[in-house]
């Protein structure tokens, strides 16, 4: 599938801090891609480099076929960008904001705009500064969707939103996704926020991309294993690197297999741990996978320190 975003060895240093470290990623056209990672992992810097808001220290990227350092007004008429950190003209009313944005976009769809105003229940006459955080994000999203962008970039859009607003927001995006040919790149530190939305995931940790694959592939290769050791059995000292978060209490052992293969997965565990009895493998939700990865990366980080 053709990539709408391609990044190769992208790095950004702020003084002594390496915010993004040799990040390479591909976002296929038409996909809904989530860039996941804890706070400070480098998600926002990555997005800002892709959109030419921050210059990369090294590496390069292309967005919609244009070098990211050359992204300008022509590209921004086809990109919708919403960020929790983005400044909005607070003194304007929602209507004024939409009136201000409309002439900038030849593809502005007034019918879609009216429909989104209704769907998001936005008060047109209220000033942006008087809106709640959720409403403000909705206004920003509306002003970024009404021209039917080819690429929608959402940087932590759900941060601090209550569950109801988040749900409305997500439902709006999903409904539009059914009708619109677009690519969505959404960053979040909380998988819960985007689980329903995405079909491809990138997990970023301390500036490096650690995982980049489709949700179905990720769900296919992660299993939560539980086994009991035979009374005289012992756990080998050398265990596969793909076994994460190993825990043993008495004879009971638990771990996360990150390289599970349907059909041979359980046999492989038995071959590594001959004393294993009652081996069970259970599928993991995207949230559980993300949490397992986050905990693994955190303990790796502690070991490195």
């Amino acid at each position: 599938m053709k990539s709408i975003i391609q990044a190769r060895e992208l790095s950004r240093r702020f003084g002594r801090t390496l915010a993004v470290n040799g990040l390479s990623l591909d976002v296929p056209k038409g996909s809904i891609f989530a860039l996941l990672g804890p706070n400070g992992a480098g998600k926002t810097t990555t997005i800002k480099m892709l959109l030419n808001m921050v210059r990369p220290t090294s590496g390069r990227a292309t967005v919609m076929g244009t070098d990211s350092t050359r992204i300008g007004p022509a590209e921004f008429s086809r990109i919708g960008y919403v960020s929790e950190n983005q400044e909005l003209p607070e003194w304007m009313s929602v209507r004024e904001l939409l009136d201000f944005c409309r002439p900038m976009y030849p593809t502005w769809d007034q019918d879609l705009c009216r429909q989104l105003v209704h769907q998001f229940d936005l008060p047109l006459s209220k000033t942006i500064k008087s809106l709640s955080r959720g409403m403000r994000i909705k206004a920003a999203l509306l002003s970024s969707l009404a021209y039917r962008p080819e690429l929608v970039v959402l940087d932590e859009p759900f941060s601090g939103l209550d569950a109801l607003v988040r749900d409305e927001f997500m439902r709006g995006l999903l409904e539009l996704s059914d009708r619109t040919e677009w690519t969505v790149l959404v960053s979040s530190h909380d998988i819960d926020e985007v689980e329903r939305l995405v079909d491809r995931v990138g997990v970023i940790d301390r500036g490096s991309l650690r995982v980049l694959e489709s949700v179905s592939s990720l769900e296919g290769r992660f299993r939560h294993f539980q086994l009991t050791l035979a009374p005289d059995g012992e756990l080998p000292t050398e265990l596969p690197d793909s076994w994460l978060l190993k825990e043993s209490v008495g004879r009971s052992v638990r771990f996360v297999e990150s390289d599970y293969r349907e059909g041979t997965g359980v046999q492989r565990v038995r071959s590594v741990v001959p004393a294993a009895e009652n081996v069970t493998a259970s599928p993991m939700s995207l949230k559980e996978i993300f949490m397992a990865l986050a905990r693994t990366y955190r303990s790796e980080g502690r070991e490195q320190e």
Partner: peptide, 16 residues
């Protein structure tokens, strides 16, 4: 429409 930093509204809009 600030020219300092990377959070200004105009930076992500088609305004040269």
């Amino acid at each position: 429409d600030s020219t300092v930093g990377s959070t200004a509204f105009w930076l992500s809009r088609p305004v040269p």
